[in-house]
Nucleic acid binder design. Structure first.
Lengths: 185, 185
DNA sequence: AACACTGAATAGATCGGTCTACATATTTTT
DNA sequence: AAAAATATGTAGACCGATCTATTCAGTGTT
């Protein structure tokens, strides 16, 4: 794959990620992706012969990996788990508000839409979440119940993000942040 | 509205709720709703002149009210808040598994799909979540931080439900249930 | 007769996907 | 090094299917 081709492919993935994060799998049309990316229709099916499913699948996986990496890297001055989660919530709130409540979790909407009826995409979402759980578990490895705690923290963050988007408000994220210390004290 | 009409209207709402809970707003076509409900096309726009938005809006509101009522009613032998939430998680797990991972939260998918770009539906979702928060707050009224705690519990449950659906497994619900006592101890 | 409701036909837009012609690189052959 | 052959990528017309919505004559009920 030449350089030009790789750039087009990336632009398609970028546009898909943005649109899907906002409106989900069914809410995003390939015409929108084409318009937003500037790539022609032919290029889409050249780079993603598997069509929409492949395009969205790779896009979700890529977004998931980026976040997984961020969760994994040993944060600067190694804050406590509670401080780390509070920081994550704050960051997510900024991102959400700045994007006019469009950018929440790049996986959640697709996960809910495809959980029951689209096996390949369900699997992608499941794997992404698993990788996040693993990264969080590593951060909580000092606890005896790190496994349960990692899933609980992820659920808490995802739920807070959902409520924040539903209310179009940072409030749920802030409320949850105030309670995190009870869980991770 | 005659009796027949009211039944048709209800059948339409039932079918919509079921389909939307499985595949979301964009993932559910009115043709599916018509087929599943057995109602004719003309009846849909007779009972819901506002079209799809009105139909889905009323359906989400109705489902939300039912759950809100369940959250509000003083449970039998008044268990502790922690026991109550554990019961909710268990119940949700049953419902989810029995429905082949189709029935999670009837609001979440629509909330995420419409958060940014569909004002009327965003508002419906926000109000439903608010009513649940209120019901939970009443259950936690003994706590000084009942407000924050109610939102946190709701986020935790919604997040657990999302992860359970994504993984097609009860596991996240069970893990979260095991941690609830830390939060509500 | 008045009203509530149905059923089918239809409209126009958009859906995901296929196809062919063309342009641009990269290799291979001479 | 020039020319020919091949691979890579672009461009958009086009397809059938499906989408939401509208219309309206007809049916059933009161």
């Amino acid at each position: 794959m030449g350089q030009k081709g790789a750039e087009t492919r990336d632009r398609l993935l970028d546009a898909t990620q943005e649109l899907v994060e906002t409106a989900g799998y069914f809410g995003t049309g390939l015409n929108q992706v084409i318009a937003a990316s500037g790539a022609p229709r032919g290029s889409l099916y050249f780079h993603f012969p598997g069509g929409k499913d492949q395009l969205v699948g790779e896009s979700v996986r890529r977004a998931g990996q980026a976040i997984g990496d961020a969760l994994g890297e040993p944060a600067g001055t190694d804050p406590s788990p509670a401080e780390f989660v509070e920081g994550v919530l704050r960051h997510l709130g900024d991102r959400l508000a700045e994007s006019d409540w469009r950018k929440g979790c790049p996986v959640a909407t697709v996960a809910l839409e495809t959980a029951a009826a689209n096996d390949p995409l369900q699997e992608v979402c499941s794997e992404v979440y698993s990788s996040w759980e693993t990264a969080l578990r590593a951060r909580l490895s000092s606890r005896p119940d790190a496994d349960d705690l990692a899933v609980t923290v992820l659920a808490l963050v995802e739920g807070a993000l959902l409520l924040a988007r539903a209310h179009r408000s940072r409030d749920p994220l802030e409320r949850v942040a105030r309670q995190v210390h009870t869980l991770l004290g």
